[in-house]
Design a protein around this nucleic acid. Sequence first.
DNA 1: ACGCACAAGATTCTGACGCATTTAATGCGC
DNA 2: GCGCATTAAATGCGTCAGAATCTTGTGCGT
Lengths: 133, 133
Amino acid sequence: MESETELVGRWRSLATCYNEVACHLDRELQARHGLSMSEFEALDRLVGLQSEKCRMQTLASDMYLSQSALSRTVARLEKQGLVERALCEFDRRGVFVRVTEHGRRLHGEARETHLTILGEHLAPAAPPAVTHV
Amino acid sequence: MESETELVGRWRSLATCYNEVACHLDRELQARHGLSMSEFEALDRLVGLQSEKCRMQTLASDMYLSQSALSRTVARLEKQGLVERALCEFDRRGVFVRVTEHGRRLHGEARETHLTILGEHLAPAAPPAVTHV
DNA sequence: ACGCACAAGATTCTGACGCATTTAATGCGC
DNA sequence: GCGCATTAAATGCGTCAGAATCTTGTGCGT
C-alpha cells in the first residue's frame, strides 16, 4: 500500500515530466517544421501504418483526440498538403486519410526533431533503478 | 543506450498514462465539484501553504501554468468565491491570493475525489512494463 | 421503393491557453 | 524630483480542444 502523499507525488512528477516534454516538443516541432504536436502525431501514426490509407475513426481512437479535434487536425494537415482525404467508394460515409509525398518528407525531418527532444527531455527519467525521490 | 523505438514507446506510454489520468480527473472534478484541473491544483497548492497568502507569481511558477493562464484561473476561482485577491501594501504591483472558507471547504471535498481518481487510474501504471491497452 | 434508426464526419459554439501588449508601480541614476 | 528600464499582473487576440448539433449516407424492415 502506498501513502496518499506518495500517490499525489507520483502524479505530480508524472504531470511535470509530461508537460516538460510536451512543451519542448510542441515548441520545437512548431519552430522547425510548423507542426503542432497533434499534427505530428497524426502524421507519425499514418506513416507508421502498413496500409497507406486509414479511416478517420481509427486514427482518432488511436490518438488521444476526440473525433472533432481529429477532424480539424486532419483539415490543417490537408491545408498544408501533408495528407489527403479520399472518399471511400464502398461506404461513402467513410473518409480515408493518406499521407502525401510531401507529408512523408516533412515527417522524416520532423521525426529527427522528435527523437532529439525525447532524448534530451525524457531520458533522465528513464533508468529502471528508480531512486524514488 | 536505448533504442529509438523504446524511447518513443516510453514517451507514448507516458503520454497515454498522463492523458488517461488527466482526462478522468478533469471530468470528475468538473462533474462533482465544478472545478477544472488547473483550478483544483491552484486551490490545492494554496491550501497546502504555511502562510495563508501567496503572490500570483509564486503560484504560477509552482504550477505548470503561464502567468496569463494563472491570472485567468484565479479570476475564475474568485468569481466562484473560492479565493480572494488582495493588494500587497508594500509592493502595490503585487497581488496576494488567499483561499476563502468556502474555498477550503470545497477543496476538502474535491481532494477526496482527486485521491480516488489517482488511486484508480494512476496506480496500475506504476510498473515499468506497461501493457498498453 | 419508402421510411426510419443508426453511423461517420463536419460544423458550430464555448471556454482555455499562449503570446504580445498594456497598465501600473518600483527603484535606480542623475 | 524626473525620466527610464524593469517587474507584476491584466487583457486583447488568435488558436485549439471538447461537447453538442447537423448533414449525409447506409442498411434494414415492410
